[in-house]
Design a protein around this nucleic acid. Structure first.
Length: 244
DNA sequence: AATACCCACAACCGCATCTTT
DNA sequence: CAAAGATGCGGTTGTGGGTAT
């Protein structure tokens, strides 16, 4: 246990956990900068937030990962890359840290061994190249957002499904006329379309090819005044469950 | 019994992005 | 519009427990 600059670090004690839980129960989640003061904890706000989100939150499923969950992680990772928070958003009760740890301790090896097998068999399967991974970034629109200063009437908390994944993708699309989805600027319509098409058939080559669009003319950003844009492009990621 | 090694997971750190003033 | 502060994310490290030698 460390105590640098008056702020405790290292493993949390039972008493600290109880203080944090009491604080969150009283004031709710958020305002993490106030949590150390409110709870009386000698911890930094980041540490408090992490402890709650990764360990203390009652929504967390601390059981073993099921085969279904493992399968879903593999599929989503193939699609999204190391976007652990997005992946975790599709796994009820799982945190990004859980998913990340599980990946590194279990699944990463599997993937590597599978690739080695492919090499040996000299029969390469379709795999997404690292630089082609689609990487949406989470964006939250505030009431002060320039986006909302115009006519665009986007709800503060876009919640097109019960989880954050689609939510964040929606926010990303709304953030800019030329959204930077990670390494490559991908027109949001195409990105959404690529997800849309996954429902019936995942073709990683096709998804990966989205990055090639940067060499083409970027499409106009859709008119988000039109509600149909949001309905059509953002509402359903449940099709991911049907990935092969 | 002692030591080395591995695994799982908790926690920290740096950074990017968003929000507020 | 800029600066400062807050938030969230992914990469990485630390640590404790279990197992093998």
């Amino acid at each position: 246990m460390e105590n640098t600059g008056g702020v405790r670090k290292g493993a949390w004690t039972y008493k600290e956990d109880e203080l944090l839980k009491a604080c969150i129960n009283t004031y709710g989640e958020g305002k993490w900068n106030l949590v150390p003061q409110r709870s009386g904890l000698n911890r930094c706000r980041k540490s408090c937030r992490l402890r709650w989100l990764n360990y203390l939150s009652p929504n967390i499923n601390r059981g073993r990962f099921s085969e279904d969950e493992e399968d879903l992680i593999l599929r989503l990772h193939k699609l999204l890359g190391n976007r652990w928070s997005l992946i975790a958003g599709r796994l009820p009760g799982r945190t990004a840290n859980d998913v990340k740890n599980y990946w590194h301790t279990n699944l990463a090896k599997k993937v590597v061994s599978e690739k080695e097998e492919e090499k040996e068999n000299d029969k390469p399967k379709e795999t997404m190249k690292a630089h082609e991974v689609i990487k949406p970034r989470p964006i939250t629109l505030s009431s002060h957002s320039n986006w909302l200063k115009g006519k665009n009437s986007i709800p503060r908390d876009l919640d097109y499904s019960e989880n954050m994944a689609s939510n964040q993708i929606g926010r990303e699309c709304a953030s800019t006329s030329k959204p930077d989805l990670g390494n490559a600027p991908i027109p949001c319509e195409m990105w959404c379309d690529s997800l849309w098409n996954l429902g019936e058939h995942v073709d990683s080559e096709k998804i990966g090819s989205c990055s090639s669009l940067q060499e083409e003319n970027l499409m106009e950003f859709p008119n988000v005044d039109d509600d149909s844009f949001w309905d059509f492009n953002l509402c359903d990621l449940n099709s991911l469950w049907d990935l092969p």
